[in-house]
């Protein structure tokens, strides 16, 4: 029997970086439309109750709002630095910058917690007696405030979770896992063995015999742990998550003046 070798690794999901980017931009587009509905409502009610909105906005703490704006803007910078570091193969710096980004996000949420807590303590929350004693425009302002900053806060949390996931991927020892093409596998069942062969044809080691019971083969390639080595697929994960983070940032940049600065 002549021995023949074939490349058995099938890229079932080939990495298409441009495709992944298109997908992410489309998703961001849907997020913009999701918030767009709320901004539309804001615009209508603002036009309907200009004076009430002006009055209600004085109740918000511009200082906390400004600090939060600075936090988010700086976090956008650090996430970009994280991408840049990974592109240059500096995994440690990339991880550090990513962690800083998440910390900024956390700072934002902590501020938000105190800000909301303060309002709720003073009885300014949807359905509260104190709020209901205000004019209709002020009630609407606070309802929009809670709905919009609440949904935005949820997005900050999701963004932090996503960035945390990417951080895990980058920090992990890079491993490539590949599926063996099942149609090729079919031919081998019961009559073959799997071997690793180097460029010059030397057999580096026999892995296993493939008998009839084997239905599926995954090939894991673990890289030596090195400072500069990273799985290129992590870069697209990081870039896409950073895009999402920027979107969260941009939405806040609109929310901040609309709620805090219209006094």
């Amino acid at each position: 029997m002549s021995q023949h070798t074939e490349s058995v690794v099938a890229h079932k999901h080939p990495s298409d970086f441009v495709g992944a980017k298109i997908g992410m931009w489309l998703f961001l587009f849907t997020e913009v439309l999701l918030f767009g509905g709320l901004f539309l409502l804001y615009a209508v009610y603002r036009a309907k109750y200009p004076v009430d909105f002006h009055l209600a906005a004085t109740e918000l703490d511009t200082f906390i709002g400004t600090v939060n704006t600075l936090l988010l803007l700086t976090s956008s910078l650090t996430v970009v630095l994280s991408i840049e570091a990974l592109q240059r193969g500096n995994r440690k710096l990339s991880i550090g910058m990513l962690a800083t980004t998440i910390l900024f996000g956390l700072g934002f949420m902590v501020n938000k917690y105190f800000e909301w807590g303060h309002k709720i303590e003073h009885g300014l929350y949807p359905g509260s007696e104190k709020l209901l004693s205000h004019s209709q425009g002020e009630i609407t302002f606070f309802q929009l405030y809670y709905a919009m900053t609440g949904l935005h806060g949820l997005h900050v949390l999701v963004g932090m979770a996503v960035l945390g996931g990417v951080l895990y991927f980058i920090a992990r020892k890079p491993v490539n896992k590949e599926h063996m093409n099942p149609t090729i596998l079919r031919r081998f069942q019961g009559a073959a063995r799997l071997a690793v062969i180097s460029d010059n044809g030397n057999e580096l080691g026999t892995v296993a015999r493939i008998d009839e019971d084997v239905r599926n083969i995954d090939i894991r390639i673990s890289y030596e742990h090195g400072e500069k080595r990273f799985d290129p697929r992590n870069l697209i994960k990081l870039e896409n998550s950073a895009l999402y983070w920027h979107l969260v940032d941009v939405i806040w940049i609109f929310l901040f003046p609309l709620f805090y600065l219209i006094t």
């Binding site: 409502l41 209508v44 009610y45 309907k48 109750y49 949807p126 359905g127 209901l132 004019s135 209709q136 425009g137 009630i139 609407t140 309802q143 929009l144 809670y146 709905a147």
Partner: peptide, 14 residues
């Protein structure tokens, strides 16, 4: 669930 009546006329909504 939370009483955020953005469409509720009683609360200034439309």
């Amino acid at each position: 669930t939370l009483g955020i009546g953005i469409f509720d006329p009683a609360l200034g909504g439309d």
